[in-house]
């Protein structure tokens, strides 16, 4: 383990990943709990995968038209927000089957990403690092962006906690009490999209999704109070992100997949413990 601590001190990349992991543990624990209890994990999954389309588009247009400001993460961010709004709108209007739209956006996003990369001039970017993550691309500015967006997400949740809970539990009643239920549902999806973007650079789409869902799902097996679930999920994510990084470094295995497996195994083991009733 001392090797890892040495590395944290001497290698900036490891330090940045560790910092990004610690910061996003808070947003993921809080947002993941809202997502899991509201049963919209599959919407989060579609949002995450659609990001690939935005990342590919950003590479293509950025290179083709020399747009330096169009970074892959900005593309991913816009794609995530857009798909969150589309899914939210369909889900609220119910003019088409919600799950159909979710699958369509999921598939379209990934396919578009790969096509854009195919036509991107110059050296082809490695999409795999966005799917499975690559801590070697983490930079100081990523950490700053993660921190800023993380604070924004947590602030929104703290300010609107009770309204979000009310809308998640009973949107009709919330509407009758003068709350704009639709706006709060879209806010929840937007918060989910933003939190995912935070982690995709460091951890990739698959790990981000796993970290959003699995700790909150594990926590929700042991508590029936949302804020407790949030705290437990934050704690679990902290352990996965720091411990997972350290152990994968020590064992010399890819960090992202290693952390996903750990989180999934703990979730699986939680079924062996009897669900608390009182």
């Amino acid at each position: 383990m001392t090797e890892f601590f040495d590395a944290v001190q001497t290698i900036p990349l490891i330090r940045y990943s560790l910092l990004a992991g610690i910061i996003s543990a808070f947003t993921f624990g809080a947002v993941g709990s809202l997502v899991v209890t509201r049963r919209i994990g599959y919407i989060a999954a579609a949002i995450a995968h659609s990001m690939l389309g935005g990342i590919g588009a950003a590479f293509y247009f950025g290179r083709t038209y020399d747009l330096d400001w169009l970074t892959p993460m900005l593309g991913g961010f816009l794609a995530a927000l857009l798909s969150a709004l589309i899914i939210g709108w369909v889900s609220l209007r119910a003019s088409e089957r919600e799950d159909t739209i979710i699958s369509a956006i999921w598939a379209f996003g990934m396919a578009a990403g790969i096509l854009f990369i195919h036509y991107t001039p110059g050296q082809k970017p490695n999409l795999e690092s966005y799917i499975f993550g690559n801590i070697l691309v983490t930079s100081g500015s990523d950490v700053t962006a993660t921190f800023a967006l993380g604070i924004l997400v947590l602030l929104l949740i703290a300010l609107f906690y009770h309204k979000l809970v009310a809308v998640c539990f009973d949107e009709e009643f919330a509407r009758l009490r003068g709350i704009n239920s639709n706006a709060y549902f879209l806010l929840l999806l937007a918060i989910t999209a933003v939190s995912m973007v935070l982690m995709v650079r460091v951890a990739g789409i698959i790990l981000s999704l796993a970290l959003l869902i699995l700790p909150a799902a594990t926590a929700s097996r042991f508590s029936r109070r949302l804020w407790v679930i949030m705290l437990v999920a934050i704690g679990l994510t902290l352990i996965y992100n720091t411990g997972g990084l350290a152990m994968s470094f020590q064992l010399n295995v890819p960090t992202g997949p290693f952390v996903v497996i750990c989180a999934a195994v703990v979730y699986g083991l939680s079924f062996l413990v009897k669900r608390k009733r009182a």
């Binding site: 998640c168 919330a174 003068g178 109070r225």
Partner: peptide, 14 residues
């Protein structure tokens, strides 16, 4: 859904 009885009743004051 993880809410307490009081949490739900408080929704009447939204």
């Amino acid at each position: 859904y993880p809410v307490s009885a009081l949490d739900i009743v408080l929704m009447g004051r939204l």
